[in-house]
């Protein structure tokens, strides 16, 4: 067992567990205001202290993990769900008009500044967690299309795929039955990396007020609210930031660890 995989799985698991636990239990109500208990430093009653409304920061972080992970994972699902079939189709018809068109479209999307475009989309459609998901998911599509196409192309030259062709299977059926299972590990690695980028993007969007709306807790908005108080109560800004760093770090290490575990040839090359 490689340490990267272990630490990555641990940190990611912690974030998921916190999000899941927040569905049934948090130490305090994350939305409950207590003006008498404003900006308290970490203590035994409030492990991570309270914010400027007296809300319990640990409880808000747990609830925030839920919206953060939900947006990032749903955006990955959009990207993988649309991008993978497109990439598979492009690889199955290499050199065709479809392949060329998809390649051009990919290049075009990559030329757009992702964050600016995401801000434009969410500001236009109205700020909400759903629209943030759509904006982030859009940029995941070309990533999965490119990954799937690249990995599938090399498979199409292999003997067992040719045998399936000779046996009379169609390109779509071969893509689904033989190509997809063989590129699944690569796609899973890509999914963890895109999830970590999604967490960062969601934090950025909700920081500028374009993510999940109040009273839903979100890590980015916690940071935005903490900004003016960073001089008098640094802990209010410290903990949400650490939550983001540890979750993103966890997903990245998990992705690296999985890649090494699934494909020994790549071991140590990109880390």
């Amino acid at each position: 067992m490689r340490p990267a995989l272990l630490i990555g799985a641990g940190l990611s698991g912690l974030a998921v567990a916190a999000a899941a636990l927040s569905l049934v239990w948090t130490p305090w109500d994350p939305a409950a205001l207590a003006i008498g208990a404003r900006l308290q430093p970490p203590s035994t009653t409030h492990w991570m202290g309270t914010d400027h409304f007296g809300r319990d920061i640990l409880s808000m972080l747990m609830a925030g993990a839920r919206s953060s992970l939900a947006v990032a994972l749903a955006a990955v699902a959009i990207g993988a769900g649309i991008g993978t079939p497109l990439g598979l189709a492009a690889a199955a018809s290499r050199g065709s008009l479809l392949d060329a068109t998809l390649a051009r479209l990919n290049d075009l999307i990559f030329a757009f500044p992702a964050l600016v475009t995401a801000i434009l989309i969410t500001a236009t459609l109205g700020p909400s967690a759903l629209n943030a998901t759509l904006a982030i998911g859009l940029f995941n599509i070309p990533v999965f299309a490119r990954t799937a196409r690249g990995a599938a192309l090399s498979l199409w030259t292999l003997d067992y795929i040719r045998a399936a062709r000779v046996a009379g299977k169609g390109r779509a059926r071969i893509s689904a039955e033989h190509v997809l299972p063989n590129i699944a590990s690569l796609l899973i690695v890509q999914a963890t990396i895109q999830a970590s980028l999604g967490i960062l993007a969601e934090a950025g969007l909700s920081y500028v007020g374009l993510g999940a709306q109040p009273p839903t807790a979100s890590w980015g908005r916690m940071l935005a609210e903490a900004q003016t108080m960073v001089a008098i109560a640094p802990h209010v800004a410290l903990f949400p930031g650490l939550a983001i760093v540890l979750t993103v770090l966890g997903l990245n290490l998990l992705g690296d660890g999985l890649r090494d575990a699934l494909d020994p040839r790549l071991r140590g090359r990109l880390t």
Binding site: A237, P240, G241
Partner: peptide, 10 residues
């Protein structure tokens, strides 16, 4: 893994 706006605040 560090969001740059949080790093900026720190």
């Amino acid at each position: 893994a560090v969001p740059n706006f949080w790093f900026a605040m720190m």
